[in-house]
Design a binder for these strands. Structure first.
Lengths: 210, 210
DNA sequence: ACCAAGTTCCACCAAGTGGTGGAACTCTGC
DNA sequence: GCAGAGTTCCACCACTTGGTGGAACTTGGT
């Protein structure tokens, strides 16, 4: 039965092309991280990837499509490594996100990319605005659900903030920490401070382990 | 804080030039906010300001110098409006910073500028990196001093974090909130959430209003 | 071997980039 | 009104930008 639709790509493509596309995305991620969307150039990305810039154009069509491909690839990586290990306990969710933060430490370029894009995409009309908004929304939804749960359990008290706004505050702190860390390397321990923030905001602080 | 001699220019200059310089800085702030440092162009800024791009070059010499002039101008505005009203009580400091956040609401372009630059400047070698680091450092120093004070007073308990790291966490939250607000307009109330964060982190919460 | 589709690169385009030189103009103090 | 410094713009530079057209080459299935 060679007919498996899982691994088969929808549009026809050759193995060589897929390799090239991957290489371009990797270099594009680095370039966008360093110089932002406007500052990075397709020619520079193509040169680093070892191909002509016309080849890049053939695969992605235009600069915006390349950017969206990079974001999609990055999120897919994150999801692939963190979601499977996440059970549905509050502790499990916290551990999973702290794990993401720890793994981010190994790829500062990607963190830099997302931070720069998040800030850049604050302007209406930015090509990645919708994608970045959705990225945040996913996190907010998860945290808001947990906050609701914890309030029902009485583990955390209602402070007059809606769960969504409270969740947005948590996400903002995380994002802000990443920006701060990039600007002041070594001054803060992002995973540790994220863990501390999550444990506090989700009511996991107790008489147990410090 | 660099030069404090705003009123008395060292080099001779005419009134017309000062007006032009101001106009250029205003447009540059908007352009850098929208497109980042790399994405904004000197010609575009000059066009918006109603002058030739050679005129811009005459006044600022190069793109980096223009960026630094914009940042310095922005900080000078902030300092001029918030510092005089700040007494040395904890409540006074909190009110002063919440006031800055409230005034920021009226100038989203400038907030966008600083957010974009903070994220961009995470890369070593960015022309505004040192300036942005110093901007953060000023805030961290203020908050760290207050945290130390409040710990001595017993108003806030030592949580194992150094005052500087705790202060950096506060600054990160503030910055993160501004980015979040730009990306999701209306979802969060930055001054309110900043006030809540400051009051909580600096031990100003009491049995009063919910 | 054949062939259609996928891939790659060369050459080119119009437009825009930061930056320079110099001539013409305006402002200020005398 | 004069002189000199400050200001402004035109013309130009070498270079880069995102994007296009087409010809040559690879790939994978038959």
């Amino acid at each position: 039965m060679p007919d498996r639709q899982d691994a088969v790509p929808r549009t026809k493509e050759y193995a060589t092309g897929r390799v090239t596309r991957r290489a371009i995305i990797a270099e594009a991620a680095e370039a966008f991280a360093e110089k932002g969307f406007h500052g990075a150039s397709l020619r520079g990305i193509a040169r680093e990837a070892g191909v002509d810039h016309a080849t890049l154009m053939h695969h992605f069509g235009n600069k915006t499509a390349l950017l969206l491909a990079v974001i999609e690839w990055h999120d897919a990586q994150d999801a692939a490594t963190s979601l499977p290990a996440m059970d549905f306990t509050v502790e499990g969710v916290v551990d999973a996100f702290v794990g993401v933060a720890e793994r981010n430490r190994a790829t500062p370029g990607l963190v830099q990319l997302l931070s720069t894009l998040s800030a850049e995409a604050g302007r209406e009309g930015h090509p990645a605005r919708a994608a970045l908004q959705q990225r945040h929304q996913v996190l907010v939804d998860v945290f808001a659900a947990i906050i609701r749960l914890r309030r029902d359990e009485g583990a955390v008290d209602d402070d007059g903030l809606s769960p969504e706004v409270h969740a947005a505050l948590i996400v903002s702190t995380w994002e802000g920490l990443q920006v701060y860390d990039a600007l002041h390397p070594g001054d803060v321990d992002v995973p540790e401070l994220l863990a501390r923030t999550l444990r506090r905001e989700l009511g996991l602080d107790g008489p147990l382990s410090g």
